[in-house]
Computed example of a mutant assay.
Amino acid sequence: MTSEAPRSRPFHQVDVFSSEPYRGNPLAVVVDGEGMTAEQMQQFANWTNLSETTFLLPPTDSRADYRVRIFTGNEEFPFAGHPTLGSAHTWLESGGMPQSDGFLVQECAAGLVRVKSDDGRLAFAAPPLTRFGPVDESLRRQIGASLGLPDAELLDASWLVNGPEWIGVLLRSAQQVRALKPDFVAMGSLKLGVIGPEQGPAGTDFEVRTFIPGDAALEDPVTGSFNAGAAQWLIGSGRAPKQYVAAQGTMLGRAGRVHISAEGGDIWIGGDSTTCIRGSVLV
């Protein structure tokens, strides 16, 4: 299975989408992934037991500053949000120097992704949606059963695919989102992201929760890819302002904050990142 003998590689564990360490979404980053096979990367990602692990590599596209491969515990993703910000944070912290002033370019399986720094907070340009549009009636019924809500409470439901195959669900309020008790059996294979506007002075504009079914059904603490799709959907339809802050992870004891900003033709998805572990791994 191994292409070469294990060697020491720089390793960081980064907390993403929170200004409070240990209250965001953790990411494992192997700073030097050269010489590792996909099988080795997948095995190591499974071992870290985090939602995602990334491996930094030299770019194959001259326009990119670095390349990243993104793995969950059982599959490789072409793109994901918090791994993008956490990987960019680690690349810069490890001495990376962008080719361009003001932003860097990450190469991933989904293509090139621009990342900029805004007063120290990194933000990525939301990639285009590869599938977008309302779900059919049978899926709406399944979504309602999964969330324990009648169809009238689902203000809208849309495919928001930008790598992960999210379905976005809009509810009337953040309180409704926080009160959900999802049925993962009814959910089947659907990946659901649910968002609702805050009704009072909460310091944030929306509450988000994302549910990932499967053998290890879970709620994700903070999800950049879903928030990117949701921002394109809601800003594009006039149901969200051009700048807003979404809270996520509240029901998990986290303090995730996703900063959204529409500028020109881009929607930027930003968040704070903090390195919590720094060392090396033998792999």
Results as ranks from 00 to 15, higher is better:
Thr2His: 13
Ser51Gln: 06
Pro201Ala: 12
Asp119Gln: 15
Ile269Gln: 10
Ala217Asp: 05
Pro83Ser: 06
Asn25Ile: 13
Pro128Ala: 14
Ile267Cys: 12
Thr37Ile: 08
Ala202Leu: 11
Arg140Leu: 15
Leu218Tyr: 08
Trp233Ile: 12
Val177Tyr: 02
Ser51His: 05
Val30Gly: 02
Asp151Gly: 11
Ala217Ser: 15
Ser94Glu: 06
Pro98Gly: 04
Tyr244Pro: 07
Ile260Cys: 11
Glu198Ile: 00
Ala123Pro: 02
Gly249Met: 00
Gly86Lys: 00
Trp166Pro: 14
Phe79Gly: 12
Thr54Val: 14
Ala28Lys: 01
Trp47Thr: 13
Leu192Ile: 09
Thr72His: 11
Pro164Val: 07
Ala247Lys: 00
Gln13Asn: 08
Asn49Ala: 13
Val115Ser: 06
Gly96Tyr: 10
Asp65Cys: 09
Thr250Ala: 03
Ala246Leu: 10
Phe132Cys: 14
Thr37Gln: 13
Glu107Ala: 01
Phe44Arg: 02
Gly133Ser: 09
Val185Asp: 04
Leu154Phe: 10
Ala126Gly: 10
Phe44Ala: 03
Leu160Asp: 03
Leu85Glu: 04
Pro201Asn: 11
Gln175Ser: 00
Phe132Leu: 08
Phe77Ser: 11
Pro127Ala: 05
Asn74Glu: 13
Val169Trp: 02
Ala255Leu: 07
Arg254Ala: 06
Gly120Arg: 04
Leu149Thr: 00
Asp183Cys: 05
Pro241Trp: 09
Lys242Asn: 15
Glu76Gly: 07
Cys108Ser: 09
Ser19Val: 14
Ala230Asn: 07
Leu57Ile: 10
Ser18His: 06
Asp119Pro: 07
Leu149Glu: 01
Ala217His: 12
Gly86Tyr: 01
Leu149Ala: 00
Tyr22Asn: 06
Leu50Val: 09
Glu20Asp: 11
Arg121Pro: 06
Thr250Trp: 02
Thr72Leu: 08
Ser87Trp: 07
Asn25Gly: 10
Arg209Lys: 09
Ala230Arg: 00
Leu234Asp: 06
Val113Ser: 09
Ser189Ile: 04
Arg121His: 07
Gln199Lys: 07
Thr223Ile: 10
Arg67His: 14
Leu27Cys: 06
Phe11Gly: 03
Leu170Gln: 07
Asp266Ala: 15
Gly144Asp: 05
Arg140Trp: 05
Val14Ala: 05
Met97Gln: 15
Gly271Phe: 04
Asp205Val: 10
Met36Lys: 01
Gly33Cys: 08
Arg114Asp: 13
Glu263Val: 15
Leu149Asn: 00
Asn74Leu: 05
Ala255Phe: 01
Arg121Met: 15
Ile167Asn: 01
Gly196Glu: 00
Lys181Phe: 02
Ala246Val: 11
Gly253Pro: 04
Asp119Cys: 12
Glu107Ser: 01
Arg178Pro: 02
Pro21Tyr: 03
Ala5Val: 13
Gln13Glu: 07
Leu282Lys: 06
Ser173Pro: 13
His82Gln: 08
Val281Tyr: 00
Ser158His: 14
Trp233Leu: 11
Leu50Met: 13
Gly73Glu: 09
Ile70Ser: 07
Thr250Asp: 04
Pro134Asp: 06
Ala109Arg: 15
Gly95Lys: 03
Phe226Trp: 09
Ala126Val: 11
Arg209Tyr: 02
Arg141Val: 13
Arg9Glu: 09
Thr84Pro: 09
Leu139Met: 15
Pro78Arg: 08
Asp15Lys: 02
Gly265His: 13
